[in-house]
Every structure is written in structure tokens, then in C-alpha cells.
Design a protein around this nucleic acid. Structure first.
Lengths: 166, 166
DNA sequence: CCTAACCTTGACGTTTAGGTGAGTTTGGGG
DNA sequence: CCCCAAACTCACCTAAACGTCAAGGTTAGG
């Protein structure tokens, strides 16, 4: 067991949050938090001795990243999971960059990270162009409509409502 | 034979397609087509006397629009439905633009169309900026990684055997 | 020590978006 | 006229992503 003394023993300097607070703060339900944990999207948070979950700031950021990806891409959670895991690898690499390890190993890790990131980037790019497409199409339509409106205003058939006409 | 009629016994030269052909051509299943119809995403297509569905080119375009929106935005079908319906209103307006009707009525319709389109546009814009955000973040990361890689290449720990070093 | 508020683990329910037959009709070529 | 591929309508099933109790354990405050 992990010797983690938190609630009573040691005043926590880090802001650990219980599940309810996290739920309230992030707008997801407690069920969703447990569900994501169960599904491996969130890694099991630390717990108090009694078993209450304690979420760190990092946990919350991860959660918000998940929410973001989910509502942005609309992918199933399984894929979101992979993306977040890839992210995690990158973060880990970031943390382990300082220690001077074997150069070749580091190189391999970085290459892997680049590969993963490129895949994600390409995916996002596709979405981006598709969205931009749709955006410009909508703008074009708006232009058309506004043109029609202007036409109607300038060549009125029914009595125009200008002062001149009264 | 090439003699096809729709429900009103009108001979059609237009390429009407049966459900199987539509499915094959668009990549969705027949079930999905019937399901979308049931849910009001696709309006009931014309039928042969026997009850076989006959999809017009317009029907197919609508379907493809639905597919596009779905995979682009990842919204639930209920919302996609609303968007497609809004689109339909616009198309309808487009068709009814030529006949000279009451100017005020037309004005109202156009205003409505503009409103609807603006709503969609705003939605898309949000997505677009969010995506762009993520895109640039990923690019930044890629830059960082490539930088690290370059560092590794330029300051090797294991004895480099470049000419300069000999 | 007691209690209210909060958390835990199940377990079952719900909605969305279809998949998968089964059994029956229809369409059109031979 | 016959036949088989293709369509039709139910009806039931699934998987994902949670929602919703139920029955109990934990924490913090008094």
C-alpha cells in the first residue's frame, strides 16, 4: 500500500480535490469521472485512507483535455483514450528530457513522439480544412442572402416605406 | 427495364436509385437509410407501386450532407437534423426566389434564412478556432521535438566520427 | 461519540445509432 | 409464368456512454 497521509495528517499544499469538487468545477458528473477511470481514460487518482478519490491538478487538466478532444472531434472514447495516452507519452518524455540518458534511446523516444504527434496533426488538419470549407460556404450563402435583401430594399414593388412616399 | 415510374405514374428520365444502389454508392447501409428516414433526417423518398424506395439525386445529396456534417461535427443526429432542415429551408427559398411574390413576405423569409445561417456559421467558427488552436499547439510541439532531435544530433555523447572531429 | 454530508462499489436502466435476422413481397429476365 | 435477387417490414440485439438508485463506508464538525 502507498503510504499517503493527507487529510488529517499533513496539511496538503497541493490542491487535491475530491470527486464532487472536480465534478462541480469541470461540469462532468461523478459517474463520468469514475467511468473514465474505469475505461482507462483517467488513470486511477490517489486516494485517502478511506478510499475517497483525490484528484490532482494534473488529473483535472487531463480530464479537461479529454473533454476538449471529445467535443472537438466527436470521436469515440476509445480513440480519445489513445490520443490522451500519446499525449502522456509526450509529457513523460518532456519530464525525462533533462536527465542525461543514453542518446540513442532518447533519439528513439523523440522519434516516436514525433510520429505520434504528426499523426494527430494530420488528423486535425483534415478537420480544419473541412471546417474551413464549410465556413466559407456558409459565408458565401450569407452574402447571397444579403444581396437579395439589398435587392428587395432597393427595388420595392409594394409601396416603399420611405418618408418620400408619404 | 428502363421504364420507371414514381408513385404518381409519372415517367421519369431522372436517375432514380433504389436503396441498394444508394447504399453501395454512398457507403452507408440500407438500414441506415431507413433509419434516417424514420428519424426524419431524410424525407420519405418516392416509391414504386410495390413500395420500393426510389431516391432522387437531391435525396442523395441530402444524405451526403448529413454524412458530412456528422463526421465533421460529431453531433447527435437530432442536431444534424435541425441543421439539415435549416438547409432545406434555404434551398426552398432559393427555389422560390424567382417568382415575384409579396416583397414583405420574401423579406421575412430571407431574414429568417440569414438568422439560421448565421447561427450555423457562428457554431462552425467556434469549432474552427478551437481546431486551429489545437493545430498550432501540435505544431509548436513538433517544433520542440525536432529541436531536441537536432540537439541530439549536434552534440553526440558517443564518439562522433565525423571528418571535422578527426 | 454522533450525525450529516460525502464517497464507495455494484447493479440495473436509458438513449443513441444502428446491426442482424426472419418471414414476406416485388421486380424483371428467361 | 416462374424464379431469384433485391426490398419491405417488424422485431429483437448490441455497444457506447453515461444515468440512477441502493446499501453501505468515511470524514469533518459539534
Amino acid at each position: 500500500m502507498a503510504h499517503k497521509r493527507n487529510a488529517n495528517d499533513v496539511a496538503v499544499d497541493e490542491p487535491y480535490l475530491q470527486i464532487g469538487e472536480v465534478a462541480e468545477r469541470t461540469g462532468v458528473t461523478q459517474r463520468t469521472l469514475r467511468f473514465y477511470e474505469e475505461k482507462g481514460l483517467l488513470k486511477p487518482p490517489t486516494r485517502m485512507e478511506g478510499g475517497f478519490r483525490l484528484y490532482s491538478e494534473a488529473d483535472i487538466q487531463r480530464l479537461e483535455r479529454i473533454r476538449h478532444l471529445k467535443q472537438l472531434l466527436g470521436f469515440p472514447l476509445a480513440e480519445i483514450k489513445e490520443m490522451v495516452e500519446a499525449d502522456e507519452v509526450k509529457m513523460q518524455l518532456r519530464a525525462e528530457y533533462r536527465p542525461e540518458a543514453e542518446a540513442s534511446e532518447k533519439r528513439a523516444q523523440i522519434l516516436k513522439a514525433i510520429e505520434v504527434t504528426e499523426r494527430q496533426h494530420e488528423l486535425i488538419c483534415q478537420k480544419a480544412t473541412a471546417i474551413a470549407d464549410m465556413q466559407s460556404k456558409l459565408e458565401e450563402r450569407l452574402g447571397t442572402f444579403r444581396g437579395w435583401l439589398a435587392d428587395l430594399e432597393s427595388t420595392p414593388k409594394t409601396a416603399p416605406k420611405t418618408k418620400a412616399n408619404v
